[in-house]
């Protein structure tokens, strides 16, 4: 029987993690809070992708194919909200 590799796989577990990310001031969670928007850092930007682009793209805008992660000129440097709650 395969182990589950994903930390959240249902609404309840997503709520648990989201709550932990939102409420904790632990330094060790800083990275994960930055990635998921819980603690915004201007130095950890997520490239802005329009709703249409994110829905329709065959893969992520910044893929290993595109390979670099250029900032759109004029795009905000703040990270998009990217909660694991989805």
């Amino acid at each position: 029987m395969k182990k589950n590799s994903k930390i959240t796989s249902n609404l309840k577990s997503k709520e648990v993690v989201n709550k932990a990310l939102s409420n904790s001031n632990e330094d060790q969670l800083d990275l994960y809070q930055a990635i998921f928007g819980g603690k915004a850092s201007a130095n950890c930007p997520v490239v802005a992708v329009s709703a249409k682009a994110s829905r329709a793209s065959g893969y992520d805008k910044i893929d290993t194919f595109l390979q670099a992660a250029p900032m759109d000129p004029g795009a905000p440097a703040s990270p998009a909200s990217d909660s694991p709650l989805g």
Partner: peptide, 27 residues
């Protein structure tokens, strides 16, 4: 590093391991 750059490869892995759906690429 609190002033860390975005490292897309790592961030994608973190999001997937966290359970976020619908992301990934050819790698």
């Amino acid at each position: 590093d609190k002033e860390r750059p975005s490292i897309y490869f790592f961030e994608t892995l973190v999001k997937m391991i966290m359970g976020q759906e619908g992301i990934g690429n050819q790698l």
